[in-house]
């Protein structure tokens, strides 16, 4: 059986998001070199992306917008005060599915980092947990300002992530598996960065790596920083 034969019926499950992680990874690798599957994925994506329109129309509550805009305006003010707009990565090639791992080390050595100047931005009496960094980030310092189930990550001396990637925050639960969050960030020109993290309730650690796409369900590159909460 050829590689293509093995995946002949897989495009539908792929565009519906119904492949288990291991099968999805294998199919993505196959896609990169199979024009026939690329064409079929493109064709079936038209149908899959129309499916949301069949959902009954619901009105989002005004309070939801208020919550979201409060966070957006807070972050916009921080960006403005830093005086540096966010940078845009170059457009991605359409069928580049393999994300570069970057030249970063896997091991997280125990390196207690000093508190960065960014801590002063937030102040307050919340619990503070320092991050331990991989050797490749030896010049960086970062900490987590925790308040209930929310936290603000404050970092300094952070290098820019590889081209086209951002730093992404993950929560590690009791099962030891990192869960994605919506906290993505890039350091400003001076290497400082902040990011809001929510949902810390049952998290045992907060880890950071770099990702090209925010739509990943498991880390695709090594962990660079770890804050152990328990």
């Amino acid at each position: 059986m050829s590689d293509h034969d093995r995946f002949e019926d897989t495009a539908g499950a792929y565009v519906l998001g119904a492949l288990p992680d291991d099968e999805r990874a294998a199919y993505v690798a196959h896609l990169a070199s199979c024009a026939a599957c690329q064409a079929e994925v493109e064709e079936l994506s038209v149908a899959a992306s129309a499916l949301p329109m069949s959902a009954p129309a619901m009105k989002p509550p005004p309070a939801l917008k208020a919550r979201i805009m409060a966070e957006v305006e807070r972050e916009a003010a921080l960006l403005a005060s830093a005086g540096e707009p966010r940078r845009e990565p170059k457009p991605k090639p359409r069928w580049r599915f393999s994300w570069p791992m970057g030249a970063v080390a896997l091991a997280c050595v125990t390196l207690l980092l000093g508190l960065g100047a960014g801590a002063a931005v937030f102040g307050g009496g919340g619990r503070t947990v320092p991050f331990e960094s991989a050797p490749s980030l030896a010049q960086a310092s970062a900490e987590l300002e925790i308040d209930g189930d929310k936290a603000v990550l404050v970092a300094n001396g952070l290098p820019a992530p590889p081209e086209g990637q951002v730093y992404m925050v993950w929560l590690v639960g009791p099962d030891g598996k990192p869960k994605p969050t919506s906290a993505l960030f890039k350091p400003r020109g001076d290497g400082s960065a902040t990011a809001s993290v929510t949902g810390l309730d049952d998290a045992e650690a907060v880890v950071v790596n770099t990702e090209e796409s925010p739509d990943v369900t498991a880390p695709t590159s090594p962990v660079l920083m770890t804050a152990t909460l328990s």
């Binding site: 994506s45 992306s49 949301p52 989002p60 939801l64 919550r67 979201i68 966070e71 957006v72 972050e75 966010r86 940078r87 845009e88 990565p89 457009p91 991605k92 359409r94 951002v166 969050t181 919506s182 906290a183 993505l184 960030f185 990011a195 090209e212 796409s213 925010p214 739509d215």
Partner: peptide
């Protein structure tokens, strides 16, 4: 919805119009 829109706000630079409309991208997130 909140997670998705904050994700969008923080990663807007990742939008690639070759992959479809902004709406398709948002609904994908």
């Amino acid at each position: 919805t909140q997670e998705a829109f904050l994700n969008l706000w923080r990663s807007g630079a990742h939008y690639d119009r070759a992959r479809g409309s902004v709406r398709t991208w948002i609904l994908g997130i």
